[in-house]
Write a protein that binds this DNA or RNA. Sequence first.
DNA 1: AGATTCAGTAAACGCCGTTTACATCTCAGT
DNA 2: ACTGAGATGTAAACGGCGTTTACTGAATCT
Lengths: 189, 189
Amino acid sequence: MAAARTLLSDVGAEGVSMRAVALGAGVTPGATYRHFPNKDALVRRVVAEAFEKLESQIGPSLAKFPVGAFERIGELGRMYIAFARANPADYRLLFAPRGENRPPVELEPGFGPVRVLEQCVRDCIAAGVMADYDPRLIALLLWSRMHGLISLFLSFDFSKEYPGLDLETGLETVADTTRSYLLDGLRRR
Amino acid sequence: MAAARTLLSDVGAEGVSMRAVALGAGVTPGATYRHFPNKDALVRRVVAEAFEKLESQIGPSLAKFPVGAFERIGELGRMYIAFARANPADYRLLFAPRGENRPPVELEPGFGPVRVLEQCVRDCIAAGVMADYDPRLIALLLWSRMHGLISLFLSFDFSKEYPGLDLETGLETVADTTRSYLLDGLRRR
DNA sequence: AGATTCAGTAAACGCCGTTTACATCTCAGT
DNA sequence: ACTGAGATGTAAACGGCGTTTACTGAATCT
């Protein structure tokens, strides 16, 4: 798993072959199959571990803001983006659609970050600062915006189309601004 | 290309191998390389053709609504979803991130549907029905929400987590409801 | 008519995920 | 202390993949 982790981080998903992993682990390819039934299982576990690390960081980071504050949602989004930026290969693999080369990881839709997001939304509604729409759908709206933005920025180069959005900070800038548009509209009035 | 189109539609991206395409075209694998420099180029062209078909349908469909009407944005979203549902393999390949097995198709971020979306947003702002935020960012916000929603629904099975959201109509339902949340918030007041 | 280009074939190369047959090495139960 | 079973490893192969190479015949151009 350490060898796979290294390969995934350093050369991306394409570089993770059972042979390369075995070589990195100082072992022949066949030996790998004593520990994982197949490549998918190995990759799933490696990716799942990375996301578990993200989940473990969410609680402490959110504690900086009071329950029911909009800032919690913003903070969650920033953490999500930072993770995707730091571990693009993991992020892509988690959301690699079913039926593709590498099927999705164990984590199901209600996985950690999203469950927390939904709770933040419920708190905001309970605190009376957010319009009381269906919190599950609000969470899905916020999640899809974040995921969509990340996915688009991982897929395309926006620097030509949107000058000023450089690759370094473009994603964060767009995410912050559009988040304020979105959350402003969801404010209770 | 016809053979590749059939394979992509019928068995998905995994089923599209140069050997299978050649077989479908009644030719040996090597012959394919007289027409396409490599597999990526072939897949790109096939996927690009599908999206060009979508683009050609947008104009007529939008003509049903007056310029500057919110309904245009909704209609655009519905067409986008319908396309993704009808051609999931194409949709996934277009947004397959750079560096993955199949790099992104020629269409760049400002590709057809998004350019139209941005124009609709400008029209809404000009008509005075939408808050006058940066239209490019509003378009990006709307696009990322649609793309994120589609991507999530292509990746995960939401029927367990969100009972009532069956696979048949769940995506459309969520898209419609969250769109009303979002556009309501963007309304000028 | 002859040269050149085009489109095709057959076979190979190196990579991949995975399986098989076989060798060890460890260690609990008698 | 011996033994046999399970865990772990190796070497080699299988079939599939994208792609390249050398060669062949037909079509086209001058």
